[in-house]
Amino acid sequence: MKSHVLSQLRSLEAEAIHIMREVVAEMQRPVLMFSGGKDSIVMLHLAAKAFAPARIPFPILHVDTGLNFQTVLDCRDRWASRLGVQLVVASVPEAIDRGLVQEEPNGSRNRIQTPVLLEALEKHGFDAAFGGGRRDEEKARAKERVFSFRDDFGQWDPKNQRPEIWNLYNGRVHMGESIRVFPLSNWTELDIWSYIEAEDIDLPDLYLAREREVVNRGGMLYEVNEFTPLKEGETAEVRLTRYRTVGDANLTACVESEATTMRQVVEEVAAVRLTERGATRGDDKVSEAAMEDRKKEGYF
C-alpha cells in the first residue's frame, strides 16, 4: 500500500501551481514579473507546468534597469523563445531619459525601478502580477499574503491586507486596483535550489562557481567588469566565486564558493550561515526597515 504522502518539494510545487491557476481563472489580465534571477525562473518553470500542454496564458514583464548581466538577458531570451511566451520589457534608462525617474546618487536603480514597474502595469492594464518573493527572505516579507492587495497607487498597506484562510484566495479588485501574487511564498532558498537541481532548470551561469577577477569592498566581493570597474587604489584578485542572488550588476556581490554544479550549490546552501540578502545585496543594508519602506512604495 502506498503512503500517499507528497514530499515537501512536490507539495510546494503543487501549491504554486494551484495559486497560478487560481489567478488565471479569476483575474482579467495577469502578468509574471521576471527579473532574470533564479526565483523568477523557477516561477516561469512552474507556470509552464501549470498550464501544460497549453502555453503560458499570460505575458512576462521584465523591468530592465540597464544594469543587467548579459548572461541574464541571454537566459531570459532563451526561456521566452522556448516557451513561446510574450515578453514585455519596461526600460529604466528610457524612463530616465524622458524624466519619469531620476538616477540616484549611489547608482542604485533599485528604488527608481518601482515607478517604471507601476507605469508598465498600468499601461498594459495588468490587474495581477506574479512576483518571486519568498517569506523567508526578509522579516517584512514574513507577513506578506500570497495574494497581496495593492491600491490604485500600487501601494502596499500592511494594516489593510485580506485574511487568507485555507487556500481560498480572494483576488477581487476594483478598477485600477491590483494584486501581487507570490506563488513561492512558502519556499526557502534551499527549496529553490533543491528544486532547480531536481528539475534541471536552465539558469544564468552566474550561479555556478568559476574563477572571477574580484575586488573586496567592505567585505563584499564585486566582480571587476564594466559595471564595477576598479577604483583608484583598489587591487583585484582572482577568486573562485559564484552569485547567490542576481540584481543590478553594479550592486550585486558574489561569494566565494567551490560549487561548480547544482548539487554542490544545494550542499553549500544547506550549510551556509548568512542570509542571501545580507551576504550579497548592498541595497538591503541601508536599514533594517528598508524592505518595509520599499514595499509600501510598490516595490516587488
Binding site: V5, S7, Q8, L9, S11, L190, A198, A270
Partner: peptide, 10 residues
C-alpha cells in the same frame, strides 16, 4: 540543516 532530495522529506 538537512540537504534534501525532491522526495525525501515531508
Amino acid at each position: 540543516p538537512g540537504v534534501y532530495e525532491a522526495g525525501s522529506t515531508d
